[in-house]
Amino acid sequence: MTVMAERPTANGTEPHSFEALLGVLDELDVPDGYQAEIIRGNIVVSPWSKGYYLDVMELVCEQLRPHLPEEHRISYGPFLYVFPGVERAYGPDIHVGHRSISRSTSNHLDGEALSFVAELTSPSTRDDDRTDKVEVYGRAGIPVYLLLDMQEEQATVFWTPSAKGYESRCTRPFGEKLPIPEPFDCLLDTEGFGAP
């Protein structure tokens, strides 16, 4: 289930700025088991992932860690990356960036400083992961976006970011190896990514 909060308004007719939405997001009392993001001008609250998603996230991190650019870190967890130019704020399932990204007291991290993101779809977030996030991550210049479609059991890697999203993509069913392009330049083994 996804809950969408209407965009807050100042006088009932005019929307607040993106910064105001971030403030509302910071103050939002999200129920246990849910996370909140800003997608297309709305605060979207969706349930946390299924248990086995943790195994998949750890498998991705373990395989990519030896191929990270110098001074980059790979992690998963509830961190909010903001994209002010397109008024989006996402909490990607897996994220890679230079260690300097986290040297901040803010809980709004710079999305354009990321070098890799991965999203594991759920029924409530699948459409946004496959459309809005492809465009936003590509326009932000993030070199690699990995989309793990947990419902279709297939992995798609996007690269060559552009003003329209990404110009290149490759899809493989779970169980096969997927080439992850520069700056990682490795094969991701998707064996064990499917539901138990």
Rank of each mutant, 00 (worst) to 15 (best):
T2R: 07
R7H: 14
T9A: 10
A10E: 12
T13I: 12
T13N: 06
S17W: 07
F18G: 02
F18Y: 03
E19I: 01
L25S: 08
L25D: 10
D26S: 15
E27V: 12
E27K: 06
V30S: 15
V30H: 13
Q35V: 05
I38W: 07
I39H: 10
R40E: 06
I43D: 02
I43C: 08
V44W: 00
P47W: 04
W48N: 02
W48Y: 15
W48P: 14
G51C: 07
Y53C: 04
V56Y: 02
E62F: 15
E62M: 14
E62S: 08
L64P: 00
R65E: 00
L68E: 14
E71R: 15
H72M: 08
R73M: 05
I74W: 03
S75P: 14
Y76Q: 09
Y76F: 13
Y76H: 06
Y76V: 01
G77M: 03
P78H: 03
P78W: 05
F83R: 15
F83C: 09
V86E: 03
A89I: 09
G91I: 12
P92R: 12
H95C: 02
G97W: 01
R99G: 05
S102D: 08
R103N: 10
S104Q: 06
S106E: 03
S106C: 12
S106Y: 04
L109P: 11
L109G: 13
D110W: 06
G111M: 08
A113V: 03
A113S: 10
S115R: 07
S115P: 03
F116R: 04
L120C: 10
L120N: 12
L120S: 06
L120A: 06
T121A: 11
T125A: 11
D129N: 06
T131G: 11
D132W: 13
D132T: 01
D132N: 01
K133A: 13
V134N: 15
V136E: 02
G138H: 15
R139T: 14
I142C: 01
P143S: 04
Y145I: 06
L146T: 12
L146P: 01
L147E: 02
L148F: 11
L148T: 04
M150Y: 14
E153D: 09
E153G: 04
A155C: 14
T156Y: 09
F158Y: 15
W159K: 01
T160I: 12
K164S: 11
E167D: 11
S168P: 00
C170R: 09
R172Q: 11
R172V: 11
F174C: 03
F174E: 09
F174P: 03
P179D: 11
I180N: 10
E182R: 15
E182V: 10
F184N: 00
C186P: 00
T190L: 05
F193G: 15
F193K: 00
P196F: 02
